[in-house]
Design a protein around this nucleic acid. Structure first.
Lengths: 149, 149
DNA sequence: TAGTTTGCTGATAATAATTATCAATAGACT
DNA sequence: AGTCTATTGATAATTATTATCAGCAAACTA
């Protein structure tokens, strides 16, 4: 099972850094693994409901996951969202937010990825820095909304 | 004077949409024009101090400017920032946030711009949408911090 | 194993940022 | 001048997030 694998991987990160994988933390991790996409903190909280975890603990766990590169934080239209980070490049994606319907979509693919790897290369060469992460949110009108006009 | 030109341009947008350019709104616009970079709401407020404008009005004006594409909103490390939008492509820039020193830098240039125009083209072709804006924030370690190690 | 120390948790108080409310006022329009 | 509508500032309300703290659980020690 792929999810199990994903979990093992996260567990290893916890062990490496001496962070305890408690049952509550596991519950939060599970929410991220089971739900593919992006969620705000409140939604993560709601999805752990069966476990009766406190909201503060959800925030605390999100903080740990973020600090260790397990989840990514993104801001779209004033909302703070979290999602499982791309383990490898093949999972890397950018976001598109439709100004009309408000939907937030994920885009990925080999060509896109290739282009972004190049962007990283250009930036690192021209500004002599080290790029560790790229947060890209495009805005505009999505296909569906364009057709409806 | 370039700033005057910039102001006239914004004024024209206001007139087109029947939004009054009151003295308080002008004061907020001036803050954006005079201060090149990004600011949070509180900083915009502070910079209008001489005019004794209420905080709520600053927020209201920011909202108007944002809704009309005059300023752009960006979120970096949990902070909400605003800056004057790029009037033309030549002013377009992306942001780089250093994980070590926390500084937020702006990057632009012909090669970068060219690359991003291409990215837009790829996305519009492959997802059949219309991209109106691109928010790109890279994270990593900046040149200065790399040298200090 | 009992005892001690340390870290984790949930409930909730505190804080910070933003938005809503509303009376006063200013500007536009007869 | 008088009416109408939009804007403003002060401030209350709301929302999201963080801090506090007592109780509990796990890990460590002798």
């Amino acid at each position: 099972m792929e999810n199990v694998q994903r979990y093992e991987e996260i567990l290893r990160i916890f062990e490496d850094k001496d962070i305890r994988m408690t049952s509550t933390r596991k519950a939060v991790v599970d929410v991220f693994i089971n739900h593919g996409g992006h969620m705000n903190a409140e939604e993560v909280y709601r999805r752990t409901e069966s476990e009766k975890i406190g909201l503060a603990t959800v925030y605390r766990t999100i903080e740990i996951l973020k600090a260790n590169g397990i989840i990514k934080e993104l801001f779209v239209n004033g909302e703070r969202l979290f999602e499982l980070g791309a383990r490898d490049n093949s999972r890397f994606h950018i976001h598109f937010s439709c100004n009309r319907c408000g939907r937030l979509e994920e885009y990925n693919g080999a060509l896109l990825l290739n282009h972004l790897v190049n962007l990283k290369r250009i930036v690192e060469r021209d500004w002599e820095n080290e790029v560790e992460d790229m947060r890209i949110v495009l805005q505009g009108t999505c296909k569906t909304c364009l057709e409806e006009r």
